[in-house]
Amino acid sequence: MSVLVNKQTRLLVQGITGREGEFHTLQMIAYGTKVVGGTSPGKGGEWAAGVPVFDTVKEAVNATGANTSIIYVPARFAPDAILEAADAGIELVVCITEGIPVLDMVKVCEYLKHTSTRLIGPNCPGLITPGEAKVGIMPGHIHMPGKVGVVSRSGTLTYEVVYALTQKGIGQSTCIGIGGDPIIGTTFIDALKLFQDDPLTEQVVLIGEIGGTDEERAAEYIATHMTKPVTAFIAGQTAPPGKRMGHAGAIISGGTGTAAEKIAALREAGVRIARHPVEVADLVAETA
């Protein structure tokens, strides 16, 4: 009842010896995620958070059979870490790091087109299949296993929506934070495809925000390809044009990327629009 991560996930933590890396590794293990090891160049042979540390991703994959990696390394080294994971044949790479230069991500994404690696992020909270595996930094306890797929460009706003769902007794199949940067590995459409094809996801929640046209493209896909009901909330209806609202990708420029346009496009595609994050749970409950 999930996409991308589950009990078969064998997770490698890149940057495991850093403060964030070690802290979140312990949290992920406590949630029940199978963390098989970590990497930190020059610290191979040591242990961190109770798992073995390797110098390179290739070595770690050979020794542990890791199929997924999560990246906690600083922005200037993160593109290299993504490429290293892809080169070692990791199927799913989740990059938490915020602040990677956009043109570095342009190169990384161009390279990934020629591999079978899927990237989630960067600048994202990761993803979680409640009760099975948490590959990210979200508070695990607010989630609950169930049949609603959640995809979002935001972190804490997703927690807010998930918390509202769980409080209403509505569980989630998988929650994917795709990240707040302009260039990201997995887009709304990619995530919607996964949920549409997952037999155990019954409906989908999409949480968007101002900037770019990813929501508009998602609306087109929903109208033409999706049979499962979709509920959405778009943040930034009160955001002024030309100002970056925290996330690198959250900016209305040249009149495009407004919340109003996104809401109109999604509504046109038959998506129910919540007026505030908590109302998402009410709309989902009506459909369930």
């Binding site: 804490t156 706003l157 707040g180 009160t238 609202m245």
Partner: peptide
């Protein structure tokens, strides 16, 4: 950032 925008809304 997302929650901050949502709070404004």
């Amino acid at each position: 950032a997302g929650l901050a925008m949502a709070t404004m809304d």
